[in-house]
Design a binder for these strands. Structure first.
Lengths: 199, 199
DNA sequence: TGCAGCATGTAATTTGTTACATGATTCT
DNA sequence: AGAATCATGTAACAAATTACATGCTGCA
């Protein structure tokens, strides 16, 4: 899965680049952020590949809009991409884990504690966002998942995995902070003992 | 955190690009994969920035080796990077989530089931890897976390968050497959009812 | 008058992937 | 003799980030 396929998938209705960006920010941005400039460039390339076709329309307000439509070739390409096996999930770059891994270099457990605290806050914000979207989605399909469309069901699944991993991470943060605190008091005791023995 | 900082952090001992790649594959590759070609390019740039200095040494076996050493400027730069706040974790690209989100387009729940199954297998493999490394690490620091060095402690933390998120994801896979199966049998019942009513 | 929102892009740079190219030593 | 390991890179391409550049409409 790449931005190309995501844009093709979002083009069920003829849309402009600007509108796509707004739609992006509503939902796919949680698992795939993208800048407007990148969207425009990608749309252009997709058009050159024959996956999209454009028509220029003048709107009542603002400048002319370039409306993109999915072609049959584009739809076929999308379906091929969707039918692929999922990418190897372990080949992800996790900058915050990398930073934590090397943070011992600072030789400052208090700094590590603040680092985890910061991640903890992000988890809470993220959880709140996921839950808000879940509520909105529930309102759309009535509340009972069994009656939801396949589209709503798939959307629910992505939210669910997000909520679960955020919760797991949050719990990790809490227990890690406790462990750091134990380490910090233990360190102080040792330092105290050292002081007493050296005088 | 980027590859630059990771390489600086890994250069506690003077090392060659090739050795760095081996070390990479042992550990940081779980949260930051990198190819040799990229490592060489980055080392070159870091040297040009004055963060590293090189000395060419002839080895007893194989061609000459270029041994990189961290400079004082490099160490300072690394510490600045480490002291930064963690990056926004929600701005991650999760291709498999994106694919799942749009998978309803195929209109084939069975395909979604296989997709989740595939992710499930990856989770299991990943969990096994994490646990193996945890065992190795434990052997190094004796078994009791309280007595572990700060370095071992930080390493443990990164493994722990990996294990927890993998477990959460695995549980999600299992419960999702159950839900899909319920949906599939329900769909069949409906199709059957339709058939009966139409004849 | 100035700001927010609609609407379109280009340019430069950085980062990551894949393929190619070379050559020595050691083990089987 | 050939494969594996050590050891170095270049080149081409793809993807993503950041900054810049433009201009209209409607509202306060």
């Amino acid at each position: 899965m790449n931005l190309d396929s995501i844009l093709l998938a979002m083009l069920k209705e003829p849309t402009t680049g600007y509108q796509l960006k707004s739609a992006f920010d509503q939902n796919p941005s949680h698992f795939w952020p993208a800048e407007l400039s990148q969207i425009y460039r990608t749309l252009k390339r997709l058009e050159e590949s024959g996956f999209l076709k454009v028509s220029t329309e003048s709107s009542d307000r603002g400048p002319q809009r370039r409306v993109y439509r999915l072609t049959a070739t584009g739809r076929k390409h999308l379906h091929e991409e969707l039918a692929k096996e999922p990418v190897v999930i372990s080949r992800q770059r996790l900058p915050y884990i990398a930073q934590l891994f090397f943070l011992h270099e600072l030789d400052d457990l208090q700094a590590t504690r603040e680092f985890i605290q910061c991640i903890r806050e992000q988890c809470i914000t993220q959880l709140a966002t996921y839950k808000k979207i879940t509520q909105q989605a529930k309102a759309e399909y009535g509340g009972s998942l069994d009656d939801a469309t396949d589209e709503a069901f798939h959307k629910f699944l992505t939210l669910d995995v997000g909520i679960r991993t955020s919760k797991a991470r949050l719990k990790w943060c809490d227990e890690t902070i406790e462990q750091i605190d134990r380490r910090l008091t233990k360190g102080k005791r040792k330092a105290g003992a050292k002081k007493r023995s050296s005088k």
